[in-house]
């Protein structure tokens, strides 16, 4: 480590760009690895739920690594703002999309891989105390009813 200190002190633009390029190469390699692994998982996994799992890895870690690489290499304030915005957006949006997709797949009673060990959502749906029925997952028919106060509290799981 002490060898690096004079290098960092003497860093002119060329050397700083070189160091940033090394870091960008590492981040880019990681991002590419996750992207490719996600694509392979989408093809190879035996089950729709496992494919969703693979695809969400590809979105978050792969795109974040590649965005960090672009930020380190180009190194301007414009790309910093946009890259941070894109990273935050994908980290929020990708789990939401995967969750909704998996929920609608489960709602459609898609078959699971035979080795699947547990299905807690099916157990919850079979439970009469569970507050969300099958019909409320899609667009409900008829006017929606707002539940407030004591009603909402009594509808909580396990309260009845």
């Amino acid at each position: 480590m002490t060898m690096l200190i004079p290098v960092l002190l003497a860093a002119d633009d060329t050397l700083a760009a070189g160091l940033r390029d090394v870091l960008a190469s590492i981040a880019l390699t990681g991002g590419l690895f996750f992207m490719f692994v996600g694509a392979v998982g989408v093809v190879r996994f035996p089950d729709a739920y496992q494919r969703i799992h693979a695809a969400s890895k590809c979105t978050t870690l792969g795109l974040a690594g590649m965005l960090i690489a672009a930020l380190l290499h180009v190194w301007t304030l414009d790309i910093a703002g946009k890259a941070v915005m894109a990273i935050v957006f994908t980290f929020v949006a990708s789990p939401i999309g995967s969750h909704l997709l998996a929920k609608s797949a489960h709602h459609a009673k898609m078959e699971q891989w035979p080795g699947t060990l547990s299905d807690e959502l099916a157990q919850d749906k079979a439970d009469p105390n569970y507050s969300v029925s099958d019909d409320e997952i899609g667009v409900p028919e008829g006017p929606t009813r707002l539940v407030r106060g004591e009603d909402a509290r009594s509808m909580r799981v396990g309260a009845a």
Partner: peptide, 28 residues
């Protein structure tokens, strides 16, 4: 670079719409 943001947002919105469509369709 803006294409990245636009494609990410479009992918997210289309996934949401697709999941909503599947949920409404029921047996998907």
């Amino acid at each position: 670079f803006d294409v990245v943001l636009v494609v990410a947002i479009l992918g997210f919105v289309s996934t949401l719409a697709f999941a909503q469509y599947l949920g409404r369709k029921g047996a998907a």
